[in-house]
C-alpha cells in the first residue's frame, strides 16, 4: 500500500513538473500563506500576554501539535475529497478498474509536493514550543500518541467527506468546512470557543482529541470546561471509532457509486 502510494505520488510529482512555472508559484504561495498563520498568533500576543488563559508558547504548542497532523493529511490524504470531480469527469471509472485500492489512488491523485512546506512549518513551530516550554518529561510520551491520533482523525474526516460525495455530488464545500475548518479550529485553545461548540467537537466530531485534550495533559492544565480527566486519554479510542466509521462509509460509497451516463 505504501509502495503503491509512493509510486503514484512520484508519478504525479513528475506530471506536475510538466508545468514548472505553476509549480514554482505554488511553492512560493504555500510558504507565504502558512507564514501568515504564525504571524497572526505573534501579532495577537504582542497585544496581550494570555489567550483564554494560555501563554503564547502554549498556544504555539497547540498550533504546532494540530498543524502537523493536519498538514500531513493535507499533503497525503486530502485529495480523497475530490471524489465528486472524478465522478463528474468519469475518471473514477478508470480508477475502479485498476488492481489497487481506489482510496489509495484518490489520495495520491495529483499529489502536490508543494504542501510539504506546511508540514515543515508546523513541525518547526512545534519544535520551538517544545524547546521553550518547560514541560514535564514524564508527560511527553503523550506527544507521539497525540500526533498519531490527530493524523488518523483528520484522515478519517477527509475520508468521510469523500464518501459523502458519492451521495451528494455537490458536497465538497461542506466537506471543506469540516476539514480545513477543523484544521483552523484546533489551532487555538478550545477555551476561546463557546461551550456547545467544544462539546460538539469532543463528543460528536472528535476534533478535541487532535490536540486539545491530550495537550491539557502534556501542559498539565485543568480543563476549563470541567471535562473529566480520563477523557484526555480517550484520543486513540475516538480516532479508532472515527476511522472505522469512515472505512464503512467509504465502502458504502463505492457500492452505491452510479457512474456517468456513458
Amino acid at each position: 500500500m505504501v509502495r503503491t502510494y509512493a509510486l503514484l505520488a512520484w508519478t504525479w510529482t513528475r506530471a506536475a513538473m510538466a508545468y514548472r512555472a505553476s509549480f514554482a508559484l505554488m511553492v512560493v504561495l504555500g510558504v507565504f500563506v502558512t507564514a501568515t498563520d504564525v504571524a497572526v498568533i505573534l501579532v495577537l500576543f504582542s497585544h496581550t500576554t494570555a489567550l483564554a488563559g494560555f501563554t503564547r508558547d502554549e498556544v504555539l504548542f497547540l498550533y504546532g501539535s494540530a498543524g502537523l497532523p493536519f498538514a500531513l493529511c493535507d499533503l497525503l490524504v486530502s485529495n480523497v475529497d475530490r471524489v465528486s470531480q472524478h465522478i463528474r469527469a468519469g475518471t473514477l471509472d478508470t480508477m475502479l478498474v485498476r488492481p489497487v485500492s481506489t482510496w489509495i489512488q484518490l489520495a495520491a491523485d495529483r499529489f502536490a509536493p508543494t504542501r510539504a512546506g506546511r508540514v515543515l512549518q508546523a513541525a518547526a513551530v512545534l519544535g520551538y514550543a517544545l524547546a521553550v516550554l518547560d514541560l514535564d518529561a514524564r508527560r511527553l510520551w503523550m506527544l507521539p500518541v497525540m500526533l498519531a491520533t490527530g493524523t488518523v482523525i483528520f484522515a478519517a474526516i477527509w475520508t468521510l467527506g469523500g464518501a459523502a460525495q458519492f451521495l451528494l455530488t455537490d458536497a465538497p464545500e461542506v466537506v471543506n468546512s469540516f476539514t480545513y475548518g477543523g484544521g483552523q479550529l484546533t489551532q487555538y485553545p478550545l477555551s476561546v470557543y463557546g461551550r456547545d461548540l467544544v462539546r460538539g467537537v469532543t463528543y460528536v466530531l472528535p476534533l478535541a482529541f487532535v490536540n486539545w485534550q491530550p495537550a491539557l495533559y502534556v501542559l498539565d492544565r485543568d480543563d476549563p470546561f470541567g471535562t473529566p480527566g480520563f477523557v484526555r486519554f480517550l484520543g486513540p479510542v475516538a480516532a479508532g471509532v472515527l476511522a472505522l466509521l469512515a472505512g464503512l462509509a467509504w465502502r458504502q460509497g463505492i457500492r452505491h457509486y452510479r457512474s456517468t451516463g456513458s
Binding site: L7, T11, A15, A18, G90, R98
Partner: peptide, 28 residues
Amino acid sequence: IGVVFGQRTTLWWDLPLRDSFELVRLLY
C-alpha cells in the same frame, strides 16, 4: 481483465506513453 473506454483514457495525461506503461507494470 483488460478494460478500454473509447471515450476516456486510462493513461496519465502529462506523462510520456512509456511512463504510463511502466506504471501499469508496477500497479499490476
